[in-house]
Simulated scan of single mutants.
Amino acid sequence: MSDLKKQATSMHKAASGLRTVGHHTAKPLQEFNAQSHDLGALGALGSLLGAKSEIEQGMTTLVKLTKALEDEWEAEAKLIGEVSDAFDLLDVLIAATAQDKKG
């Protein structure tokens, strides 16, 4: 196996891994987001009552950041996949050129 083929295979695996991140985080992220609006337990703690709004905002911010990271990872996975495809094509072209020189 050529170095380009090895690199393409490795990149393809990495891209596949990045694409699956969203599948693993969707449910926990949804549950986390739902909990940011259900902080009733904090109401029982008078000193933390004022912090409830800040905690909700912080949790909402974390959800938005996580979604943004997932979007970024998806874009990176697409780019890595395209580079992997280009390496595969380049490997085929190099092999064809070498074959033409032999024959």
Rank of each mutant, 00 (worst) to 15 (best):
T97F: 07
A75F: 02
H37F: 09
Q99H: 04
S10M: 11
H23R: 13
F32D: 01
S16M: 10
V21L: 15
K101P: 00
E56K: 13
S36W: 02
A77W: 01
L39V: 12
S36G: 06
F87S: 01
K78M: 03
L18C: 02
L65W: 05
A77T: 03
K13S: 09
S16C: 07
N33A: 15
T60Q: 14
L29D: 06
G40S: 15
T97M: 07
A34T: 10
V83Y: 04
A95M: 05
E74Q: 12
L89Y: 06
S84H: 02
I94C: 03
L65A: 14
Q30G: 06
L90G: 08
L69R: 11
K5I: 15
L49Y: 07
T20Y: 10
H24F: 15
L4K: 02
G58N: 09
K101I: 10
A96I: 03
T25W: 12
A86Q: 08
K101D: 07
K64L: 11
K13M: 05
H12F: 03
G81L: 01
G22W: 04
V83G: 00
G46T: 14
K5G: 03
I80M: 03
S36K: 08
L93I: 10
S84M: 02
S36I: 02
G17L: 07
A75Q: 12
G17H: 10
V92R: 12
S36V: 02
V92K: 13
F87G: 00
K102V: 11
T60G: 10
G17C: 09
T61Y: 06
T60C: 06
G46K: 14
A41R: 07
E76S: 07
K67F: 00
V21P: 00
V21M: 09
Q30A: 14
H12R: 12
W73P: 01
M1I: 08
H24R: 13
L4T: 01
Q99E: 05
T25Y: 10
S2D: 05
S36D: 05
M59T: 04
A8V: 05
T9Y: 03
R19M: 11
K27H: 11
H12K: 13
E76L: 10
G43C: 07
D38H: 15
W73I: 08
A34P: 01
K13Q: 10
Q30P: 00
A86E: 07
G43W: 06
K52W: 01
S10Q: 14
Q7P: 00
L18E: 00
K102A: 12
K6W: 03
Q57G: 07
H24K: 14
T66V: 06
G50A: 08
G81M: 01
D3W: 07
H23P: 01
M59S: 06
A34I: 04
L49V: 15
G103C: 04
S10Y: 13
A15R: 00
T20I: 11
K13I: 05
T20E: 15
H12S: 11
A77H: 02
T97R: 12
K102W: 04
